[in-house]
Simulated scan of single mutants.
Amino acid sequence: MTEPATLALDSVLGFTLPGRHARGRLARLGPALDQILAAHAYPPVLARLLAEALVLGALLGSLLKDEKGQLTLQAQTEGGAVDLLVVDYRGGEMRGYLRHDPERLAEMPADPSLFALFGKGYLAITFDQAATGERYQGIVPLEGGSLAAAAEHYFAQSEQIPSLVRVAVKQEADGRTRAGGLLIQHLPEGEEGRERLHTRLDHPEWQHVEALAQTISPAELTDPRLALDDLVWRLFHEEDEVRTLADMPLSRGCRCSPEHVRGVLARFPAEERAAMAEPDGTIRVDCEFCARSFPVQLDA
């Protein structure tokens, strides 16, 4: 079913509160999220989990100033129903995938905890700057009640930036999924920040912003009829100044294609390509993100 163009879906909006030394991002996913989830028949509880991870990917990835830079979220776990979750974001294009044990999931209650789903694990958040070739990665335990809580822990531990993260997911009766999220941060040195910002306890302006941001509801985050800039105004209309950036569209962006697959295979020595090939000379490469298989002839 096609969404009316007036609905506020598949976009991320940046904003700043200069007088409070804060910046934020609001994201909402709709059709692009449905396209990503449709590649695999995920049980509802796992569809919600991946939707939450994709919203986080949009919030964090949109912080990149390098348009060709990439943000990757990867959860690796042991002892839970989910043993791998990967989401990446590049220039507004997103993809995501999770792998799970159906038998272990079937033994769990209808609404399992984050620990039950992941067991012992960690969340790795990686920023790749294409322009400079720099890479920064932070790793935090998968603790708390949600991936949003783990992301807050990441900013507190790795970046030392006071942050608030809220994510909501709504699964409609017709099978569609809507998800939205808010990230807001305190940057005492301004929007650009520094390489390291040390958390202090004497920032009353942050406590004020945090209190306002905490009033946001799951319904507001997922309501496609509520424009993101209207939501910013609803939260912070009493502030002296609120600056919003241009909306950035979000889309499903799996980068697999026959040309890409051939390019990857060309990097392998001829003897390794021969070992990969089936008797008829075909190498089949599967993309877990979009559940497609690409047959490539060895002599192509």
Rank of each mutant, 00 (worst) to 15 (best):
A5G: 06
F15M: 07
G19I: 01
H21W: 12
H21T: 06
L26H: 09
A27D: 13
D34P: 07
I36Y: 13
A51H: 08
A53L: 01
G61P: 02
L63I: 00
L64Q: 08
K65G: 14
G69M: 05
T77K: 09
D83W: 15
L85P: 01
L85W: 06
R90D: 07
G91K: 14
G92H: 13
R95M: 07
G96H: 00
L98T: 03
R99S: 15
H100Q: 01
D101V: 02
R104S: 11
E107S: 14
M108W: 03
P109Q: 10
P109W: 09
P112N: 09
F115H: 07
L123Y: 14
L123V: 10
A124N: 06
A124S: 14
A130R: 05
A131L: 10
G133S: 06
Y136M: 13
V140F: 13
L142M: 05
A148T: 02
A150T: 11
A150H: 15
A151V: 15
E152I: 02
Y154G: 10
Y154V: 11
S163W: 02
V165H: 13
R166V: 09
K170F: 01
A173Y: 00
G175I: 06
G175L: 05
R176W: 11
T177I: 11
L182R: 11
I184K: 00
Q185I: 03
P188V: 00
E189S: 15
G190C: 08
G193V: 02
E195G: 15
R196M: 10
R196Y: 10
T199P: 06
L201K: 06
H203C: 01
H203E: 03
E210K: 05
A213Q: 07
P218S: 07
P224L: 08
R225D: 03
R225S: 01
L235Y: 01
F236L: 00
E239G: 00
E241R: 10
E241Y: 00
V242E: 12
V242S: 13
T244R: 09
A246W: 04
A246Q: 10
D247Q: 13
D247A: 12
M248V: 12
S251Q: 11
R252C: 05
G253K: 11
E259N: 05
G263S: 15
A266F: 04
A266W: 07
F268L: 15
E271N: 12
E271M: 04
G281V: 02
V285A: 14
C287N: 12
C287E: 09
R292G: 03
Q297G: 14
A300L: 07
A300Y: 08
